[in-house]
Amino acid sequence: MKDDKLTIVSFLCNWCSYEGADKAGNARLNYPANVRVVRVMCSGRVDPEFVIQAFKEGASGVLILGCHPGDCHYKKGNYKTLRRIYLLKRTLEGFGIEPERVRLDWVAAGEGERFAKVANEMVKTIEKLGPLELSEV
């Protein structure tokens, strides 16, 4: 099964996106089982090191989901995430890692459908790119 190779690690903020993922569950919306979850209090906690480490540990894609801009539970954490993740994506390009392997998006606490949609889209994107095979060193 493709799932074996193509793991997607998602960092979900506790207040919006994690709840959004729960809502997707409540509504029994399906998405592939290779979307895995790490809960953080705020998307602002997501350190670029986490994303890189996820790739090192075998993930082929990384999703970072936070509250919509302006709605951050901690007021402004997601603005920092926006800056960091974009710069990280540009940096990863230099490492030969396609920027599409990292996706930052916003999912509100009530947006179960949106969570499932983003998760499904991400899986499709990563399936198209194939597994991330880092060079052996």
Partner: peptide, 13 residues
């Protein structure tokens, strides 16, 4: 539950 059992129809997965 919400992030696994309820969103994954395939039992093995």
């Amino acid at each position: 539950r919400e992030q696994c059992a309820w969103v994954t129809p395939d039992k093995t997965a």
